[in-house]
Amino acid sequence: MADVVAEQALKRTPLHEQHRALGAKIVPFAGYEMPVQYPGGITAEHKAVREGCGVFDVSHMGEFIVTGPDAVAFVNHVTTNDVAKLAVGQVHYSTILNERGTIEDDCLVYRMADRLMLVVNASNREKDLAHILRYKGDFDVTVEDRSDDYALLAVQGPKAEEILQPLTATDLSQIAYYWFAEGEVAGVSGIISRTGYTGEDGFELYVPAADAPRLWDALLATGRITPAGLGARDTLRLEMGMALYGNDIDDTVTPLEANLGWLVKLAKGDFVGKAALEAEKAAGIPRRLVGFTVAERAIPRHGYPVFHDGQPSGAVRSGTMSPTLGTSIGTAYLPAAAATPGTTFEIDVRGKRVAATVVKPPFYKDASHK
């Protein structure tokens, strides 16, 4: 019995004590104890990232390292984007599908000279690994789950480069958006990636787990970086219309329905889920994920029922009051014919139906990402 309890215990990132010392509110998330906000509050953290610079501990994310002669071909087979077109030092966003064409996870793929790295969602880590290994077949590859070896710090905001540059000899101005370099930050070796989940400029730093506290402390010692938690991460990504697995996308929807068709390269050759997507495309995509706004002072929460022309159309997938825009925003799936800007529909907010209007994301248009 003790072993069962131990298996169910929440994990902690290498920065847990730093979060506690800062007075963070810790909540269970994807099997981890994670900071949802610090004493200054979500709105202040959100504003810091939009206007200056914030840092997120996202060490719970999963990292798989793929090596071997067939590494590129294998990852190309189990993801939808075209890995063969990645240059060394480049990264792209992609999806992992099942045979039904629905989304097992979204991920990032990094191409190094001698290996590939897949970055997956923490809640899907074990599922993803088992899933992709089912397709190993005759591919000459080795797949290692190195998630526990890495910590990941996301330094995000329009002033991120300016603040981070004095801490590294790597010329950050030479790292283009969705490219990366291997170097040191504050004496800690790792991967410096110009990526993020906020819409702002910034970097994601993959470093050895044991070195994460030293790096975190060095970042905060600049006096110009605000610690930010999961709450601000969610409001920031939603303002940009970025998908969250488990909300906007899951294994009941295809990338074509989720407006992620740009991640699907049907011409690249065979991959898991290709036949199902081709069939869906030929038959006509039945529904699409839309962004929406609500004029009333009502917040559309995840799970609230959605109605179009009086008929049920699923539920709100993501919803919040936008800290930047001061209005309610969200996402939902509507019949494809209705998924156009200006279409109105209704959301049941605690027993009252309120009007929502389809808008094209991103909701926030002035982000600094390059």
Rank of each mutant, 00 (worst) to 15 (best):
D3F: 01
V5G: 01
E17D: 15
L22Q: 06
V27R: 11
G31H: 10
V36M: 11
A48I: 09
V55E: 02
T79V: 10
Y93T: 08
L118V: 04
V119Y: 02
R125G: 03
K136A: 12
D138P: 11
D138F: 14
V143C: 09
R146C: 12
S147T: 07
Y150R: 08
V155T: 03
A160E: 01
E162N: 03
T170H: 09
E204R: 14
E204L: 07
Y206M: 12
Y206W: 15
D217T: 10
A218W: 04
I225H: 07
T226F: 12
T226Y: 09
L230R: 03
R233T: 00
E239S: 12
P255M: 10
G261F: 13
G261Q: 12
W262D: 14
L263C: 07
A267M: 08
G273T: 10
K274C: 13
K274L: 12
A275S: 14
A279M: 04
E280F: 05
E280T: 10
P305I: 10
F307Q: 01
H308S: 11
D309H: 07
G310D: 07
L325K: 08
G326K: 12
A332M: 08
P335H: 08
G342V: 07
T343M: 15
T343P: 09
E346A: 15
I347K: 03
D348W: 14
R353A: 05
V358N: 00
A367L: 05
